[in-house]
C-alpha cells in the first residue's frame, strides 16, 4: 500500500497572471496601517508576494518623511500600482504611466470608482479605461462589479485578470453574491480574484472555495485589532479555502448519515 502521507499536498501549486507565476494566492494592500513598519510586518506575515500601492505627489515640505519603498521593498514584493482616485480613463493612463516610470511595472490594478459613498466601480468607464491601458502596453488586473456580463466584456477587451468585489471596499461585509462570483469564475479564462469586501478569515476561505484564483484585501488586515495576526490568519484561510476547493466538498444532505458503521453493533 502506498504511503498516502508521502503524497504531500501539492505545495508547489501556483497561479499565473500576465505570464508571471506566483505561489501565494493572497494579495494585500498597503493602505490604512499605523505606519509603514507595521505594514511591512503584516505583508510578510500574510505570505503575499504581490502588494497593491498607490501613486501620489511627493511631500515637498518634508522630503525626508518615511517612504513606502523603504519598508515594503520592491525587491521583496511585486508592486501592483493602482489607479485609486481616478475617475476617467485618461486619469488612469496618466497615473499608471507615472507608476511604470517610477518602478518599471506594467502589471497594474485598474479601479475606476463612481462615488465616494459606495466606492462602487463605474463599469462603463472601467471598460473604456482598460482599452486605453491595454493599447498603452499595460497588463491590467481589473477591479469590477460582480456582473458576469461586464466580466466577459473586460476579458474580451484584454484584461489580465478579473477582480470582482465581494462587498464594497472597506466594508468587511463578506461575500454578498456567491452566485454571480461562481458564474464569473466558471466562464473566465483569465484569473479571477475576489477583491474588496472580505472582513475575516472565514470569508477569505469562502472566496477561495468558490474557485477563485486569489483574494485581494487591505482593510480586513489593516483594521484588525492585531493586523499581523490577522495577516497570518488570512494566509491560512486562503490556503485552506483553496485546498477545500481542490478537494471538492461533500454533497449536502437533508438528513443525517452515521459516521460509525451500523454493522457489528453489540
Amino acid at each position: 500500500m502506498p504511503d498516502t502521507i508521502a503524497q504531500e499536498l501539492n505545495t508547489a501549486e501556483t497561479w499565473t497572471v500576465a505570464g508571471r507565476t506566483f505561489t501565494s494566492r493572497l494579495i494585500v494592500g498597503t493602505g490604512k496601517y499605523k505606519d509603514y513598519a507595521q505594514n511591512a510586518a503584516a505583508a510578510r506575515a500574510s505570505g503575499a508576494e504581490i502588494v497593491t500601492v498607490a501613486v501620489r505627489r511627493v511631500n515637498l515640505t518634508d522630503p525626508n518623511q518615511p517612504m513606502l519603498m523603504d519598508f515594503v521593498k520592491p525587491d521583496e514584493f511585486t508592486y501592483l500600482p493602482n489607479t485609486a482616485g481616478c475617475f476617467t480613463g485618461e486619469d488612469a493612463v496618466r497615473t499608471l504611466r507615472l507608476a511604470r516610470e517610477a518602478g518599471g511595472w506594467d502589471l497594474v490594478k485598474l479601479e475606476v470608482l463612481s462615488d465616494p459613498k459606495t466606492l462602487y466601480p463605474d463599469m462603463e468607464e472601467t471598460l473604456r479605461s482598460l482599452k486605453l491601458l491595454v493599447k498603452d502596453g499595460f497588463s491590467v488586473m481589473v477591479y469590477c462589479s460582480d456582473d458576469p456580463v461586464y466580466a466577459r466584456k473586460l476579458e474580451e477587451a484584454g484584461a489580465a485578470a478579473i477582480m470582482p468585489l465581494a462587498a464594497p471596499i472597506g466594508s468587511g461585509l463578506g461575500i454578498q453574491n456567491p452566485v454571480t462570483l461562481r458564474i464569473i469564475i466558471e466562464n473566465a479564462k483569465v484569473p479571477v480574484l475576489v477583491d474588496a469586501g472580505v472582513g475575516t478569515a472565514s470569508e477569505a476561505a469562502e472566496a477561495m472555495e468558490l474557485g477563485c484564483d486569489a483574494v485581494l484585501m487591505n482593510t480586513a488586515i489593516a483594521e484588525a485589532k492585531d493586523p499581523i495576526r490577522m495577516a497570518r490568519a488570512m494566509k491560512h484561510a486562503v490556503i485552506a479555502g483553496r485546498e477545500a476547493y481542490l478537494a471538492g466538498r461533500m454533497p449536502r444532505k437533508l438528513y443525517a448519515d452515521p459516521s460509525s458503521p451500523l454493522a457489528g453493533l453489540i
Binding site: 494592500g29 490604512k32 498607490a54 501613486v55 515594503v72 500600482p81
Partner: peptide, 10 residues
C-alpha cells in the same frame, strides 16, 4: 511639473 512616488494603497 508633477513629482510622484508610491504610497500605501489598496
Amino acid at each position: 511639473i508633477e513629482i510622484v512616488h508610491f504610497v500605501g494603497g489598496g
